[in-house]
Design a protein around this nucleic acid. Structure first.
Lengths: 144, 144
DNA sequence: TTTATAAAGGATAAAAAGGTCTTAATATCT
DNA sequence: AGATATTAAGACCTTTTTATCCTTTATAAA
């Protein structure tokens, strides 16, 4: 469904949100350790998220990554996915046909239409804060 | 959603079904030409589908690929997808966590549960014959 | 102003996915 | 039997994704 980079990005996003709620900035090392991801690769993904304004970063001692309070409340899964994997999930033909469209649908276009809409809605409506709250309450898990 | 190999596989499967209904066997070249895919790569994918008993093949002159009449009626999208991409779509954690389960769900496990079930149902219930009939009737398109 | 700390950026490496090519096996026709 | 058409199989190459490493830049604090 998502690329490895995007999986790490979502995991990182939820952890950063979790800490940002308590005004705690987190370092690359802490993030990679918590979400159990390769440090250097995670750095690249976080950079990409910063460039796309999904998260914020501060250099120097006591620096690290955080999500601004106002951003934190409206940030949703789609923001992270769009920043890393792009919008292909919604738009790209399931069978990889360039010409596939409503007017000229591929053989499975109609079948997947509803599901793709549902995925889009899910990503748009799922807020990162919500996910981080579930995690904090022990309802969900990122590490064993 | 699917690998490129799987996309080609589905496209090929629909075309072969289409021709098999009229008792026509199709050659690798014809298939690759019709579904607009790289010939050699398509050969590999078809071999994989033959090995997994999704389609049948006959060597030599007037040989080619076909789908046996009895197979044709129950063959569904999931048969092709399972043969090429495996069953990861249904089972693998959306965030790539090995430990993710009903008892210990990842932060998005619950959110994606319904959608994943729907995808599984869709793949299981969508018959290749049906897709090939839509194509024959000009309701859907594989080529421009 | 120096120093330690932390992210940013560029260059490189390894693995996986995507794709090609050659040779073998086999069925058909003459 | 021999020539030919066609798939089967495996070795090989290319591109993309995943991942690492090293240098540079920014900044906070001593």
């Amino acid at each position: 469904m998502f690329s490895k980079a995007c999986e790490y990005g979502i995991r990182a996003g939820i952890f950063i949100a979790n800490q940002s709620k308590e005004n705690k900035r987190v370092s690359l090392k802490d993030i990679a350790a918590y979400i159990d991801s390769p440090v250097a690769f995670t750095a690249k993904i976080l950079q990409q998220m910063v460039r796309n304004k999904v998260i914020d970063s501060v250099k120097g001692p006591h620096g690290g990554f955080e999500i601004n309070k106002d951003k934190l409340s409206h940030l949703s899964l789609s923001d992270i996915v769009n920043a890393i994997d792009g919008k292909d999930i919604y738009s790209r033909c399931v069978l990889g046909l360039d010409a596939c469209s409503e007017m000229q649908p591929c053989p499975v276009h109609g079948n997947f239409k509803i599901i793709r809409t549902e995925i889009k809605l899910l990503l748009d409506n799922t807020k990162i804060v919500g996910l981080s709250e579930d995690l904090a309450r022990g309802k969900t898990f990122l590490k064993i």
